[in-house]
Structures are given as structure tokens and as C-alpha cells.
Amino acid sequence: MTFTIATTLDDALAAMAAGARPVAGGSDLVVAARHGKAPLPGSIVAIDRLGDLAQITGTADGVRIGALATHATLMRHPLIVDSYPGLADASALVGSPATRNVGTLGGNVMNSSPAMDTGAPLLALGASVELRSVTGTRIVPLGELWTGPGRNVAAADELCTAVLIPAPATARGTASSSAYVRLEYRRAMEIAVVGAGASITVAADGTVESIAIALTAVAPTIISVTGLDAFVGKPLDVAALAAVGAIASEQASPISDLRASDSYRRHCVGVMARRAAEAAARRAGGELIAIPVNRAFGIGAAR
């Protein structure tokens, strides 16, 4: 086995061009190896010292989140908490404090698990990843990134260097927000049984300007809910929220496993979609709902 510590991005890309796999926090790579799911790669390049890749920067187009930004950073970062709270909700639910301190957004996204927490809010927010290799850079929308459990379109020599989220709508009188909710059986060291991320823009009169929802752990990848245009121009009232939930349930194709049966997953993902949409809409309406939503209302909320 070879293990290289990259001190520059070019070092890292060169190592990957030579066949190395990147490791940042190691919270997926190392755990999978220890559990016998996937042996450690024969050649590894550590990228955790590439400080530039940990930057979170507001841009004219939105936000650029370096791939090495940790979950612990994201859940508290003012820019994320204010403008993309759904991503903060998801980051705050990942693993334990130890996992969140080492686990990175780039690692979570590129691990491509259908149960990843950050995937649904990012997909609902219309995010893309920046993939770099020695031969160039390309931007891939998340909707085109994942191809199956643990699989994505990145080539072996491509490194995810950033996640890009477009700016929320800023038209006069409109307000946008997002939320992520998951079904969990305990409050730490948990993995989503199912989950839903929602990104919503509401007009000054409270009607929906845009709505996007993505679902966790009900298909081979994180999926977007389609057919939500019917809600545009209408208020997101109780009946509309129930309809959102019903559509999400219908579009899920869950499996039965140790964590839940397919029918229970199908039911619960509708509940999660409804709650995520409600939380996002309430946040867009100016209500302060603490991060993560899971601790604020619905499952296990304090009051």
C-alpha cells in the first residue's frame, strides 16, 4: 500500500492520476474497510491538509463550499445557517460530534450513499459539484452525479473540490428557505431510515413561487420529487402539505431491510417530505426554526 500526503492540490490530482484514492476525514473509507465492506485501496492520497479546499465563500451566484468543509463547520456557518439551513439541518444530524468534526461535505456527496444526509437538501437546492483532474475541471449538477448506491459519474482521477449552491431567489417580495428532516430511531450515531429535503420560495402573498423536494434512502440514489409545479401559485396549506407528502410517498421505491419495511418507509418518507416542506415554508415566512429541524418539531422535538 502507498500513502501520500498531498500538500498542494496539484500533488493530490497527480497522485489521483497515478491511481490513488483520496481520503479526507476517512469516516466512510476507514469504517467500510474495518467492517469488511470494501478493503482499503492500495494507494491513498490524504487531502486533509489542503486548507483552501475547506473555504466557504459567498459568490455572486450563491455559495462555494470547499469539499473539505466539515459537517461541524457547516451546521454553524452563518452563511449556511441563514441562506441554506436545510444543509445545516443535515450536517447537524450526521453521526456524532466526532464524525461531524472529521467528516467532510465532499466525502459525503462523493460516497454516493442513498442514505447520505446532505444529499437531499443539496439536490433540492439545485447544487452542483466541481470535479477536477490533471486534465481539467467540470461542473456536474447533483441530479446527474449519482448513478447508484456508492456510484457516481466521476472518473477515478477526478477529485471533488467544491460544492456549489445557487443563490436563493431574490426577486422583490419573495423569500426562500430550506429544511431537511429524517426519520431516526435515536438521536446520535444514526443513519437516515428515510429523509426529505425541501427548498421553497414563497411570494409576498404567501403563495408558492417554487418548490423542490428530494428524498433520502427510498431509491438507489437520492431522488428529486417530480410534478410539484402544481403547487406553484397556491398557498402551502395543510391540504397542500398533505398532497406533497402523498406525491413523495408515491414516487419512492424503497426496499425492506433491517431498518424498516418498504411499506413503512414509503409511508414515512411522505411524512418527512411534508414536514420538510412545512419547515422550509415557515422559515421562508420568517419563522426561526432551530437547526436541526428534527430537534425543533416533529420527531423528538423539545418543548
Binding site: R187, A188, M189
Partner: peptide, 24 residues
Amino acid sequence: AQYDADGHQRNTGLLEYKLQTCAD
């Protein structure tokens, strides 16, 4: 403990065998 029909225990790890945590 969860078993399959052949008598194999399926949840032999701490992710799938869910102990309570301090947070709970």
C-alpha cells in the same frame, strides 16, 4: 436481535443494533 429464516443474526454491529446514546 434480528434473524433470518436460516438462523443467521442480521444486525451484528452497533449501527444496526441500536443501543441508546447519551443524546437519547
